[in-house]
Design a binder for these strands. Structure first.
Length: 964
RNA sequence: ACCUGGGUGGCGGAAUUGGUAGACGCGCUGGACUUAAAAUCCAGUUUCCCGCAACGGAAGUACGGGUUCAACUCCCGUCCCGGGUACCA
């Protein structure tokens, strides 16, 4: 017998299988289907590495066994080929990503084939193929049409090295997921996908999935649902604050909302002036301004409120007064005649309409412009213009009356005395809220900051902005913060509580503001201790064994709620003081990347029509050829420099417009690829319903833990959305998920070029052959465990395969079927449970114990081994005279009769300790076993002089004598 | 800190879920074959004690307790290691 020439034999069969298209999955098969998926790789310049081997081999062994078990098995492969490495290579070497990608794909494909994998190459896909990304773009537009893709300016994560924005999920430990650079915050206009809309569905769907619990738990944590309440806290100014209300044209202090507002403010203890301005029916600027300056008190704590023309007067008064005041609130201020939509007013001629906006800003701590619904329709553009000039907060009210002419206008009071809305999971501790904290970025901060505190607050905000996100959290040491000078009213106790700002409150979660309950929250406690704020215990939680600050109990110091349980109080106090609210940690998905090598976002920006989707018939929007791939770093994609591509006609109005120049993140193409495999060449739709119906959902999805809150979350989101739109037939895309552990280098460190501990699969195939690699890799350890590569261990597997090859085949005609049937049972179960390591061990054990066997059993052995060592078994199979492929044989069945042992080893214990073991026939009765056991000299010795008080008998296993 | 997964010979790891702990492989030791080496084959290999030997005894699955006739496996507490999250109100 020749020695096994793996190079020759492996090549021979790989070519033969390809020729026969042995692994093609037929759409029209009558067999039951099985869809086995492995995460498709990024074709990098270094080729596929050991990390790819694990899931690919597991999937391959499983798929091969699945075919032999009578399933029409879909095991496809493709390329997730958009991404930074190809682009960075292009920047460095000037090679177009298309070219380097094609080359890398060719190499990776060669590798996959050299491993003897059984992928159906007829279904190969490539995310960078325009025929593929046409549909990625199409799906994006579906999101857009459903209102789930939107453009917004916000503070996003920015990688300064890759010069692109990142999604929340792509930031690991404050660093860029790809390159490890510390991420910065940057204010940018970006596309977002509204994944938060699907938070609840993504959460619910998990329950139905056959995924390992830790993965589901990790997704749950990432989505981060918490139930609680939103509660409004009224604010109150310092006692010295006073108000000056100026009425408008034809107005009087007795008209409209003014008497009501005055009364409300006075009831809260403020001094309010509402003078009657001279000649209200024919007002003149000079006369009215003079009147106010002469007859009204204005000071540093004054807030001037101007209604309609009173707003104009207010601005003039302020500039003439020339000293800082507290704030300016303009309620539907009269419209500037210069403004293009203005309708002529009789008083125009008596006023000058130039405003010194910068001066007004300088003299006020805050400015607010209020409008209601009708106002907004009629004069919206002016109000917007004015608020931008004044850097004022523009509030649009819900009132449907016009021009604030009703006797009561709650929106005014709400903005004169703004309410702070907080989210809390512990509304039962409301009585213990002794102060409030706003995030430094909170919209009310400027308005609530008093003159005295202004410099300190400004300094604190500046300091916060300097810190990167990493610094802000990683330090996590002392709490910092400053007092705004303002107070809020605790709605339960009616007490004034101070309002602080601190960076331990995040602007991105909840409402960006909290009620602080130091007695029942650790962070609030630390803060209160440091700044000497009040601590009031309101829940008697002794006896609750959970963590401090999470404990429930009976309320105390809580008025009528005293002695009520936390749970009840939560419900009752939510009803009385707020509304129920569910919050999620999940953030919307930042979807723009300022890079070249990705799917262009199919949107056209028109100065008239705004963002317009590219019409479906114009898809795909192809990537243009560029000369420079370099990201600009200014937040613009390199595409922005290609004028011929950027400048287009608006599909809606035909005017000149510009293309969106950002591209999609790498996760886009992989968020639906498994669907495309079912119908990869369809040019009418991304996949036909019929074929989706047939193949999806994926039955088993092999992949890494690192994708739990990235690809796996995104893919579920896209699928759920497409399902809701009626484009996809399976609600959840992946029925079962099988994660794998990573392979470390021989030094137990992560394999990396810089460490020089990379084991290249190509070299192993070259030296030992693919079958050895295929059996050794699983043999390293459990599929889900982290294992380290062991150079020497591979010899054991090599020896085993050599033994198989040299097995002497002058077959016995024996009928000892026990061993082979047990092996069938073991291997079948192990593959089913992804315990490939013990399967390999069982093959070895079997061969060690069966030096000779019948031809039939030998063939069974080879068939079982075929998914693991496809080349050698195929060769041996044909040497036995078979003409068909071993991979098309059906999977052996085991017979219960043979699996059960005829003879068993009975263990005899005395007081639970093994004293003898004896061979007995299976099914021996307790009496028989006892009789035999009592004859054993060693057992006798241990029973001597003792009395048997009890006897435990386990069929075919043991007998245990309990003695005294 | 929280959520997870784990801790078994010199090493990688088994153990049908409460029933002989250490399968299988590596390594190591001894032997056979060989002029020699490689390859291969055979035997041994948790620790300690007794012994010519044994299917003789004791201890042993991170540590400390507990439940049980019987615990790597179940319960309580502690310590380490890996993964995820991170001031999420």
């Amino acid at each position: 017998m020749k020695t096994y020439n793996h190079k020759e034999i492996e090549k021979k069969w790989q070519e033969q299988w390809k020729k026969e298209n042995l692994y093609h999955a037929a759409d029209d098969s009558s067999k039951p289907k099985k869809y086995v998926l492995v995460e498709f790789p990024y074709p990098s310049g270094e080729g596929l590495h050991m990390g790819h081997l694990r899931p690919f081999l597991a999937g391959d062994i499983y798929s091969r066994a699945s075919r032999m078990n009578g399933f029409e098995t879909l095991y496809p492969m493709g390329w997730d080929a958009f991404g930074l490495p190809a682009e960075n290579f292009a920047i460095k070497k000037g090679v177009h990503p298309k070219i380097s990608t094609a080359k890398n794909i060719e190499n990776a494909k060669r590798q996959l084939q050299s491993w003897g994998t059984s992928f159906d190459w007829d279904r190969e896909i490539n995310t960078t193929d325009p025929e593929y990304y046409k549909w990625t773009q199409w799906i994006f537009l579906e999101f857009y049409k459903a209102g789930l893709a939107y453009e917004a300016t916000g503070l996003i994560n920015w990688c300064p090295k890759d010069k692109t924005g990142l999604a929340n999920e792509e930031v690991i430990d404050g660093k860029c997921e790809r390159c490890g650079t510390i991420v910065e915050k940057k204010e940018m206009k970006q596309w977002y996908l509204r994944i938060t809309e699907y938070a609840e569905k993504l959460l619910e769907g998990l329950d139905s999935l056959d995924w390992p619990e830790p993965i589901k738990q990790q997704q749950r944590n990432w989505i981060g649902r918490s139930e609680g309440a939103e509660i409004d806290f009224e604010t109150t100014y310092e006692e010295k604050t006073d108000f000056l209300i100026l009425h408008g044209y034809t107005g009087l202090p007795e008209k409209n909302f003014i008497p009501w507002l005055k009364k409300e403010l006075e009831s809260k203890g403020y001094i309010v002036q509402a003078p009657e301005l001279p000649n209200s029916n024919d007002p003149k600027e000079e006369e009215q301004v003079e009147f106010v300056l002469k007859n009204s008190h204005i000071g540093p704590n004054t807030i001037i409120i101007g209604h309609s023309l009173g707003g104009v007067v207010a601005q003039k008064v302020l500039v003439r007064y020339g000293k800082p005041i507290s704030g300016l609130i303009l309620i539907a201020p009269a419209i500037d005649p210069e403004f293009h939509s203005a309708v002529e007013r009789p008083f125009w001629k008596n006023f000058t309409w130039g405003f010194d906006y910068d001066e007004i800003i300088r003299l006020t701590e805050f400015r607010t412009v209020l409008s209601d619904l009708k106002e907004e329709q009629k004069r919206g553009s002016y109000l917007k213009f004015l608020s931008e000039k004044l850097k004022a907060k523009l509030i649009s009210g819900e009132s449907n009356r016009e021009h604030f002419t009703a006797p009561e206008e709650p929106i005014i009071l709400n903005n004169v005395l703004p309410k702070i809305r907080v989210f809390t999971t512990r509304p039962d501790t409301l009585f213990g809220a002794t102060y409030m904290v706003l995030a430094p970025e909170h919209a009310l901060v400027t308005q609530l900051t008093t003159q005295d505190q202004k410099s300190e607050v400004t300094r604190y905000i500046a300091k916060t902005n300097e810190k990167s996100e990493l610094e802000r959290t990683a330090l996590e040491k002392e709490k910092t913060g400053v007092f705004t000078g303002s107070y809020a009213i605790n709605p339960a106790t009616g007490q004034k509580i101070p309002i602080w700002i601190a960076d331990y409150v995040l602007s991105t979660y909840g409402t960006g503001a909290i009620m602080a309950v130091p007695a029942h929250d650790k962070r609030d406690y630390e803060f209160a201790k440091k700044f000497e704020l009040g601590i009031v215990k309101v829940v008697n939680d002794e006896g609750d064994r959970r963590l401090p600050y999470e404990r429930d109990g009976r309320l105390m110091n809580s008025g009528k709620y005293n002695t009520i349980s936390s749970a009840t109080a939560r419900a009752q106090m939510t009803a009385e003081f707020g509304i129920k609210k569910v919050q999620y940690k999940l953030r919307d998905w930042v979807f723009s990347r300022q890079r070249y090598w990705g799917e262009p976002i199919p949107i056209i920006h028109c100065p008239k029509c705004g963002a317009v989707p590219v019409p479906e018939e114009d898809l795909p929007v192809k990537l243009p050829e560029v000369e420079k791939y370099e990201p600009t770093g200014t937040g613009e994609s390199p595409l922005a420099a290609i004028d011929s591509w950027v400048n287009v006609k608006c599909p809606k109005c035909g005017g000149s417009a510009k293309r969106e120049t950002n591209t999609m993140p790498q996760w886009a193409g992989s968020s639906w690829y498994w669907i495309r495999y079912t119908d990869p060449k369809n040019d009418k739709e991304f996949a036909s319903k019929k074929l989706q119906q047939h193949w999806t959902p994926v039955d088993i999805y092999f992949g890494g833990m690192e994708h739990t809150t990235l690809h796996l979350l995104y893919a579920r989101f896209w699928n759920l959305f497409l399902y809701d739109q009626g484009h996809v037939t399976a609600k959840e895309p992946f029925a079962k998920r099988v994660p794998h552990g990573i392979i470390l280098g021989p030094d137990e460190e992560k394999m990396s070029k810089s460490r020089g501990n990379v084991v290249n699969p190509d070299e192993i195939v070259e030296k030992y052959g693919a079958d050895t690699l295929r059996m050794f890799e699983p043999f390293l350890g459990p599929h889900e465990a982290t294992v380290s590569w062991n150079d020497q261990g591979i010899l054991g597997v090599k020896r085993f395969l050599d033994k198989v090859w040299r097995y002497q085949r002058d077959f016995e005609e024996g009928d000892d079927n026990n061993h082979i049937h047990k092996l069938v049972q073991k291997i079948t179960g192990d593959i089913q449970n992804f315990k490939f390591n013990t399967a390999v061990a069982s093959f070895m054990e079997f061969l060690n114990e069966n030096k000779e066997m019948s031809r039939e059993n030998w063939e069974t052995f080879l068939v079982l081994l075929a998914p693991f060592a496809p080349h050698m078994t195929e060769e041996l199979w044909h040497q036995l005279g078979h003409k068909d492929s071993i991979h098309q044989q059906s999977w052996p069945k085991f017979d219960e009769r043979y699996v059960r042992d005829e003879n068993v080893t009975m263990v005899v214990q005395v007081l639970g300790r093994v004293r003898a073991s004896m061979a007995m026939s299976a099914g021996a009765t307790q009496e028989e076993v006892r009789a035999a056991a009592l004859l054993d000299p060693n057992v006798k010795k241990h029973l001597e002089g003792k009395e048997i008080v009890k006897e435990i008998f386990v069929q075919d296993k043991l007998i245990n004598f309990v003695v005294k």
